[in-house]
Write a protein that binds this DNA or RNA. Structure first.
Lengths: 355, 355
DNA sequence: TAGTTTATAGTAAATGTTTACAGTTGCACT
DNA sequence: AGTGCAACTGTAAACATTTACTATAAACTA
């Protein structure tokens, strides 16, 4: 039977010969006398009736809708995160209102504002990485919020679901060390020229830097070096963003420094691809001459030659877990931060150091 | 000023010393006397007041929310489509409720059902490609719907926004022909063993096949061949889905047929990568021995070696345009189907035929 | 059997808007 | 000044639910 313009509780109740309260209760899973339940069920069936979500909302019910705000939707990390979130939300019977910031701050603020005043039960929010000046978000006082895929430092008072970037940097570096590499270059997005002269503790304390999860990757790198008793050489650190072209130019920069290096830890598979591209163009073979670690385990890494050794971060799981955590916050269970493990994937862009 | 639990029209009206109707009108852009407008503005400011969306909805207002249902969110095509949709939606002041089907039919049906009874102004829907048995969608009678990124045949009565797959197949093939290639293999997802013995017209008419946009790509291939007076050889057609591994095995299949071929038209950049991988592993050089066309112009194609010659389809624009078309349907302007042009990208996986 | 408890049903109020309708004000014109 | 009209404002009735409260009937208990 067609779901006409407005079949309402009243219609159903009339048809079933009961009061609207009974229909409402039946539909909300409150016990009603079996005979009546049958009649209501029939009426509901007959009209293909659903409760009007708007009308329920006005009475302060949950909307069973959560917001997800990401820096961009067409980057594999976030796309996969979103897919994971969608799956978990579906299992919870929730819908997802999605917002992209296009990497722009104005948009971010605007989107959050729009969302905050929407009828959401909660929000999963991944701030744009460059957010040094964090947005002061009024809405966060009212709305359950989980921060996804960003290091704890971002909004310390809010629950986080994030990957172990420190572990990622540590694992990469330790693996290269175990292969015999000792001159390990590190490509870091947060790096600033001034840092070359600073001690590492000072760098870690520089205001503004704390926002970057890349910094934790760096501290993992340092830890591994230390464990092997290798002293850290700031000349081996290059500023590098996350794209293919960024990898290319950072590799050129490294080459231009005329210092020895036998391997590189990057922050993204795209960067690793760019690095390999540039290196090979200079006649430097990967992995024979230089080993290169990717980060993120994108599809791409299995396709290019050499296949990328990399760090796997399970963004799908991260998406799911974010929704779960948010679910807890919404239902006022206490929620702990969740740090997701990261995994070393060994493929062909790394090899034992030739002596 | 904090946006407390429930600041309502009444509060604002009281504070401003006017009636709730006036506040409502002011907020909805209906002219009110300037003095009052000022007072209302002050009150609104003071309470940081927003209209309660749920309460408006109950009166049948638009929700300014549209649904977008895609087969998967973490495939670059759909991710980019979604990003485009998000941008346009933002410009229209609309929010996006997103649903992924995980490529599964049950989920698809369930998701649509959930969405249809949500408070949406409209829906953008990209059915799962394998949908041979199309879902009979009750909701489509009530809700403005635009079909995105699928050939017109899918839901003939609904407006479509889609890419010119026929043109894509034609462009690819014609380009290879212009390079001197004459034995052009075609990898097609819809292909069935029985088709080898059938004439091409019969194939085009086979029920079930019509759903695949891949079929249009094939008809473009045929058209180009015909234009060059080349007869079509069904032995050069291989069934192949859209992934990297699919490309690998289809290439092996082609090789095993022991027939001559000088080039391949694929349906996806992933497939092209798989093909190249397999070919090179057999000592067949791309593009020197065989030219390979990708499809889709993914990021990946600029990264691998050789860089992929491919067909660019602007999924971002497709996403934007879908939202625009839906906007028209919602506002009862008449909407035409939109066919987006496709563009030949020449890179390094194709070359002049050596004689 | 009468009294008490339990289970369930119905009534009506409440939710926060929009908007039809009726009322008010001020202004231009005669 | 009186009339007509335009421009606005306010009142109150929807809108489709949920739920506190009250009513009723049945099931126990003594």
């Amino acid at each position: 039977m067609a779901n006409r313009k407005s079949v309402t509780l009243v219609d159903v109740a009339k048809y079933a010969g009961v009061s609207i309260a009974t229909v409402s209760r039946y539909l909300n899973g409150v016990r009603v006398r079996p005979e009546l339940a049958v009649k209501v069920a029939e009426a509901v069936e007959k009209f293909d009736y659903r409760l009007n979500p708007a009308a329920r909302l006005i009475k302060g019910q949950k909307s069973e809708t959560i917001g997800v705000i990401l820096p961009e939707l067409d980057h594999p990390y976030f796309a996969t995160l979103l897919e994971g979130a969608a799956e978990q939300a579906r299992e919870f019977g929730q819908s997802i209102l999605v917002g992209s910031c296009h990497g722009k701050h104005e948009v971010e603020e605007q989107t959050i504002d729009q969302f905050a005043h929407n009828i959401l039960d909660g929000l999963i929010y991944t701030p744009v990485a460059k957010s040094v000046n964090l947005i002061e978000i009024e809405a966060f006082r009212e709305l359950p919020v989980v921060i996804a895929a960003r290091d704890k430092s971002v909004y310390p008072e809010l629950p986080h679901v994030y990957q172990d970037t420190h572990g990622g940097g540590y694992l990469s570096t330790k693996y290269l060390l175990s292969l015999g590499h000792r001159k390990i270059a590190f490509f870091a997005s947060f790096w600033e020229p001034g840092f070359t002269e600073m001690g590492m503790l000072d760098i870690l304390k520089t205001p503004g830097t704390g926002v970057y999860s890349s910094l934790n990757r760096f501290s993992g790198y340092l830890e591994a070096l230390q464990e092997f008793g290798i002293s850290y050489d700031p000349k081996l650190v290059i500023k590098c963003s996350y794209g293919f072209e960024d990898g290319k130019s950072a590799a050129k920069e490294l080459l231009s420094r005329m210092i020895e290096f036998d391997s590189i830890v990057t922050a993204s598979d795209y960067v690793a691809c760019g690095v390999i591209d540039t290196l090979e163009a200079q006649g430097i073979s990967v992995p024979n001459d230089v080993s290169v670690m990717g980060y993120g385990n994108l599809e791409l890494g299995k396709i290019i030659k050499p296949q990328l050794s990399t760090i796997h971060q399970n963004m799908f799981e991260l998406g799911k877990q974010s929704v779960r955590s948010l679910h807890d916050v919404i239902h006022e269970k206490d929620t702990e931060d969740i740090l997701l493990d990261v995994e070393l994937i060994v493929r062909d862009s790394t090899s034992k150091k030739e002596i």
